[in-house]
Design a protein around this nucleic acid. Structure first.
Length: 815
DNA sequence: CGCCGTTTTATTTTT
DNA sequence: TAAAACGGCG
């Protein structure tokens, strides 16, 4: 009978440092656990000394391998469960891994630390909060809260929030934090007016967070690093505790995560990372693909194992995915193969409109469900942007097909839920300014903009938090009526704040939310929507109760609940027991698999997004996203695009994605609905018959621009496609008379007046080629504003992108 | 201060 | 299109 640690924090005799030594019998036991793995996977699981990198293609059983490796460690007594740390990409993945390991080695394995970087280090910070001057009840700020706080700071600093939006400032600060750039460094590096403004806000923003006893997502990684730097003894303790560190989806780690991994593994050097560079899709969030590419440089004695056998998909799907990723350069060497059946070709569906596309998806799902008996839960419909979900939802609802949606306006993103959560956070942490601002007048209680302004001024003058200012409304010089309203508010919050630590979480929440009038105001509104919202608030309160009572011996606090829900991703909430079709973004689909997968919206400007198409690096990331989507499918993969799609409430023509036309050698891999073999490039873009066969490769020109095609022949071919196609083509309305009642004479329809402007030589519209006096020739990549304020973003091969006001810039249109 | 009608503006992806 | 921001009035 094996014995393992009974308590997460006490791994058996001797405490955290307890050494464990395998006996022959233990090793034999452990070995037996590897039976279900193939040889390469076994090798990966068995290599437990030193750094290990597992390069794992999609569907190669990497989670399975990691699970067995951890079970192996425990069974062989190389480590106590609590000496194992596993960092996954989603909490769901962690949950599943924990369950599987527990299945393998028994319930004693519970003490493993598993979760996302963010949730694991939030837990660490909770324990060590006092060391860095926080209280353990710190709030966790999402993007909304961050922007609210920034807006506040910009107001105080007199910065124009129109020109420098809190959203983009937030993005820049987040980027800086991910790169571990301090406010001082940032200020030093700032090289343009925009960065100067960000530099002015970055420091105060951090100070404000600290004053509010709050952390943003990036802080959850940045603070542990600072903690470890300032307290080497603390670092040492964690280094010794975690004898084995595992990181899944390593290709999606950022600089801070990389640093944390390095710090933690410094003692035992048992760092095992798993990932696939071809599936790196989070660069926009600071993920650095370099982390996995240079793992061997960072850890010269690392063992590298490649899992190249795919267990998930048919031969055709694997080959198709391979054809996708071939469009990229510089992937790690991998040779994916599978023993699975040949399978059916991938099907490409063309639709007239997004509605039509959704209908085709719906019909196909129904058909496969009825004729092939595929259960609803085995279907996934993927898309690039959340906005696309609407038409799909409508079609499924019309067809009475049960579905669930991941992301979008998920439960914890809804206004009423965020409001309720803000109240609860305020009870736990009254200095939380962002939460206070959110709810001080929700529902309305006579505290308007002017009153808040007064509090803000008073707080700034005396260096107080808004909460502190709100506690002295009369000193703040508020008129009687307003002061009374503020007093009522602070009195109510204080009453619950004083009980927050002692009362049971569910009871406190219920009473508090009741008291705030939030529910009453929804009830009074009495519209179908408001009643749904009311129901949502009830559901939240139930969730609190469920959380608090999950462990009856050890009821969890409201503060823990709040921190946990801030870190729940949408996929985490994906319940597997529901038999429904899944709708989600391509990003959210990572790590999942379905029998039948639809990748919708395969259109230029959408997938790849217009902005990404301008930049080779971003374009490659989009391509990897396509790769991720395609490799979710086990047996059938459908791609679809619509020839027109609503954008800004107007129907716009669309061209199918270059990702389709660049595919090579897909003869028997890709078919149209009718069963005909797919022919890259339609007649509209038909090529001169010069034998150019290749797909479009994005390449840098000597002048820093880029173009499609590598040989002159290919270049010419490509030009006849995207480069030289009618730049206005995709602006046409396919519905004659749509928009402004423009006459539909032939193919060329009037262009959208709002975004274009007359100039010598023609109209300036997106896609047009123009000449500028100083910058030379360039291409319009975006238009914005109207009338006098119309401006064009133009890409000049020599000088890069410039945003020009048409009123001033003299542009001549040449094509 | 708060309501309501009108105008403007925005669409990546997310822990 | 739809959500947010704006502006005028009671």
């Amino acid at each position: 009978m094996r014995t393992f640690a009974l308590h997460p924090d006490d791994p058996g005799p001797g405490g955290v440092n307890a050494s464990v030594s395998p006996s022959q019998a233990d090793l034999a036991d452990a070995e037996a656990l590897l039976g279900g793995l193939n040889e390469v996977q076994q090798e990966a699981a068995r290599t437990t000394e030193g750094p290990v990198m597992i390069i794992a293609g999609p569907g190669s059983g990497k989670t399975r391998t990691l699970t067995h490796r951890i079970a192996y460690l425990i069974a062989s007594k190389k480590a106590w469960p609590s000496q194992i740390l596993a960092l996954t990409f989603t909490n769901k993945a962690a949950r599943e891994m924990r369950t599987r390991v527990t299945d393998l080695v028994g319930p004693e394995a519970k003490g493993m630390w598993m979760g996302t970087f963010h949730s694991v280090f939030a837990r660490v910070l909770r324990r060590e909060a006092d060391k860095i001057g926080f209280s353990r009840d710190f709030s966790i700020y999402d993007t909304d809260d961050q922007e609210r706080l920034l807006r506040e700071l910009m107001l105080r600093a007199g910065i124009d929030a129109k020109k420098y939006t809190p959203r983009s400032v937030r993005g820049r600060i987040s980027g800086a934090k991910n790169q571990m750039i301090t406010p001082a460094e940032y200020a030093r590096l700032a090289s343009d007016p925009y960065e100067e403004v960000v530099a002015r806000l970055y420091g105060p923003y951090n100070d404000a967070l600290r004053k509010a006893n709050a952390m943003d997502f990036d802080d959850l990684l940045a603070w542990p690093i600072r903690l470890f730097e300032q307290h080497p003894d603390t670092l040492k303790a964690y280094q010794q505790r975690w004898r084995y560190v595992h990181i899944d989806e390593y290709q999606d780690t950022n600089r801070a995560q990389y640093t944390l991994a390095k710090l933690l593994a410094a003692e035992h050097k048992n760092l095992c990372v798993v990932g696939d560079d071809a599936q790196s899709i989070y660069a926009f969030r600071g993920a650095d693909i370099q982390n996995i590419l240079s793992f061997q440089k960072d850890y010269p004695n690392a063992t590298t194992v490649r899992l190249e056998q795919n267990y998930r998909s048919t031969k055709r799907i694997v080959a198709f995915a391979d054809a996708i990723i071939k469009g990229n350069t510089g992937q790690l060497d991998k040779n994916l193969w599978t023993d699975n059946a040949e399978g059916d070709p991938v099907t490409l569906m063309e639709a007239l409109s997004e509605r039509d596309e959704a209908q085709k998806v719906e019909r196909t799902i129904r058909d496969l469900h009825i004729r092939a008996g595929v259960p609803w839960r085995q279907f996934a419909v993927l898309y690039r942007t959340n906005a696309q979900s609407r038409s799909l939802e409508e079609a499924l609802r019309r067809g009475n097909i049960p579905y669930r949606m991941v992301g979008g306006t998920s439960f914890y993103q809804r206004k009423e839920i965020k409001d309720a959560l803000a109240y609860l956070r305020l009870a736990v942490n009254p200095s939380d300014d962002a939460s206070l601002l959110r709810v001080i007048n929700t529902p309305t209680r006579g505290i308007g903009a002017k009153t808040i302004d007064g509090l803000r001024r008073y707080a700034a003058e005396h260096g107080l938090s808004l909460w502190q200012a709100a506690n002295e409304p009369r000193d703040a010089g508020l008129p009687n009526r307003a002061a009374k309203a503020v007093e009522d508010f602070t009195f109510m919050v204080s009453r619950f704040a004083s009980k927050a630590a002692s009362s049971p979480a569910d009871e406190l929440s219920r009473e508090f939310i009741q008291e705030t009038g939030l529910m009453q105001s929804l009830r009074d509104e009495n519209t179908p929507e408001s009643l749904v919202r009311l129901e949502n608030v009830h559901e939240l309160l139930n969730a609190v109760a469920e959380f608090a009572q999950a462990d009856s011996d050890n009821p969890r606090t409201l503060s823990e609940f709040l921190q946990e829900v801030s870190l729940v991703a949408d996929v985490d909430r994906l319940a597997d027991d529901e038999n429904r079709v899944t709708l989600m973004t391509l990003h959210a689909s990572k790590g999942l698999e379905f029998t039948v997968v639809f990748v919708t919206g395969m259109e230029e400007g959408l997938f790849p997004l217009a902005k990404a198409a301008q930049d080779p690096t971003e374009l490659e990331e989009e391509r990897r996203l396509f790769y991720v989507g395609a490799t979710r499918a086990e047996e059938a993969l459908y791609l679809s695009y619509a020839r027109s799609r609503y954008r800004y409430g107007e129907s716009q023509g669309a061209v199918r994605s270059r990702f389709l036309d660049e595919l090579e050698g897909t003869g028997d891999l890709l078919r149209t609905e009718s069963g005909a073999a797919f022919r890259p490039r339609t007649s509209r873009f038909s090529l001169p018959d010069d034998g150019a066969q290749g797909g479009y490769r994005v390449e840098y020109d000597a002048d820093g621009g880029y173009s499609y095609g590598s040989s002159p022949a290919q270049r010419r071919a490509a030009k006849s496609g995207y480069e030289q196609m009618d730049p206005h083509y995709y602006r046409q309305s396919l519905r004659p008379g749509a928009g402004k009642g423009a006459p539909a004479s032939g193919r060329r329809v009037e262009y959208d007046d709002e975004f274009s402007q007359q100039a010598p030589g023609g109209r300036v519209v997106t896609g047009a080629r123009v000449v500028h006096g100083t910058f030379g020739e360039g291409k319009v990549i975006a238009m914005e504003g109207s009338g006098e304020r119309t401006s064009a973003t133009v890409h000049f091969p020599r000088v890069g992108q410039k945003k020009l006001k048409l009123k001033f810039a003299k542009l001549r249109v040449i094509g």
